[in-house]
Amino acid sequence: MVEMTGTLHVDPSNAEQARAWDGDEGAFWAEHADRFDRSLRGYRTPLLEAAAVRPADRVLDVGCGAGEITCEVARRAAAGRGLGVDLSAAMLRIARRRAAEQGLANVGFEQADAQIHPFPPGEFDLVVSRTGTMFFADHAAAFATIARALRPGGRFVQLVWQARQSNEWFVALTTAMAAGRDMPGPPPDGPGPFSLSDPARVRRLLTGAGFAEPRVEALTAPMHFGADAADAHRFVSARLGWMLADLDDSGRARALADLWTTLRAHETSDGVLYPSATWLITAVRA
């Protein structure tokens, strides 16, 4: 069964994600696209080095967002092409604008649920994803779809977050905004930022989908949240504003004060920086 969210065809298990990413969540990310790209800049070089794009490659970018990585792989695949897919129409508009501004004629963008999208079999030489694959509701189905879209011997390179406790940015910011409340996260295998944080689970999913044994590399890089504490406070309080919804005035004041304290403690001459940790996972279609 396929569910319709607006004009977007999604698997029913991804309907909630589609409503968020093609709604307020995606609109916020689109509005702050440059800032989100800047926050992940420390991972750009290792991801692209692992991708090792060749001039004639046909490349799929899953969860492409505003298209920074899609545009870069298309530029490197000058005799090939790049396709970025995402659930967010707002972010795809930014991606198309960026591609046009960069004069890239060999790149396209499509709004799609990559878990079920009918990509032509063997259409791509390479699939990349920068922190996008964690949000699938059914990773086994999504990875099987991606495997079918790759030619035999094609590669799948994805960057995903390590465990919550290894990512100080997440722990510090959400703890501050919780204002002393216990805020349970999503189940470890459900859609969410840390759903692929267990390398053993990722290996099982990938090999079960038709990939050879993957290579998993641990990476760390600073996450950038703003030019200074005041800039970061405006951004993070808006990004996590939903966490304040059920607080009274005193609770809101505490949360925003705690947020200021942690942001101020991480202020450097290069901006507000927090440690982060990811897995760089490379797998070849068998």
Rank of each mutant, 00 (worst) to 15 (best):
G80E: 10
G80Y: 09
G80V: 09
G80I: 10
R81I: 02
R81E: 13
R81A: 12
R81Q: 12
G82E: 09
G82K: 11
L83W: 07
G84N: 02
G84D: 02
V85G: 04
V85D: 04
V85R: 04
L87I: 06
L87Q: 06
L87W: 04
L87E: 06
L87H: 05
L87F: 11
S88W: 06
S88K: 09
S88Y: 08
S88V: 11
A89R: 05
A89Y: 00
A89V: 01
A90S: 15
M91H: 02
L92R: 13
R93K: 13
R93A: 15
I94P: 00
I94L: 05
I94Q: 07
I94G: 00
A95T: 12
A95W: 11
A95K: 12
R96T: 15
R96L: 10
R96H: 12
R97L: 11
R98E: 03
R98C: 01
R98V: 01
R98Q: 05
A99T: 07
A99L: 06
A100V: 13
A100P: 07
A100F: 10
A100M: 14
Q102I: 08
Q102V: 08
G103F: 11
L104K: 09
L104H: 10
L104M: 10
L104F: 08
L104V: 10
N106W: 04
V107E: 08
V107L: 08
V107I: 09
V107Y: 10
G108K: 03
G108Y: 05
G108Q: 12
F109D: 02
F109I: 03
E110W: 06
E110P: 00
E110L: 14
Q111V: 15
Q111W: 12
Q111L: 14
A112P: 02
D113Y: 09
D113M: 11
D113E: 12
D113S: 11
D113I: 10
A114P: 07
A114I: 07
Q115A: 15
Q115D: 04
Q115C: 09
Q115M: 13
I116C: 06
I116W: 01
H117L: 10
H117G: 07
H117V: 06
P118F: 07
P118N: 06
P118G: 07
F119H: 02
F119Y: 06
P120S: 09
P120V: 03
P120A: 14
G122Y: 10
G122W: 11
G122R: 12
E123C: 03
E123K: 04
F124I: 06
F124N: 04
F124T: 03
D125Q: 09
L126T: 13
L126F: 14
L126M: 14
L126R: 15
V127R: 00
V127F: 00
V128M: 03
S129I: 07
S129L: 07
S129C: 07
S129T: 08
R130E: 01
R130Q: 04
R130L: 01
R130N: 01
R130K: 05
G132E: 14
G132F: 14
G132D: 14
G132N: 13
T133S: 05
T133F: 05
F135K: 04
F135N: 06
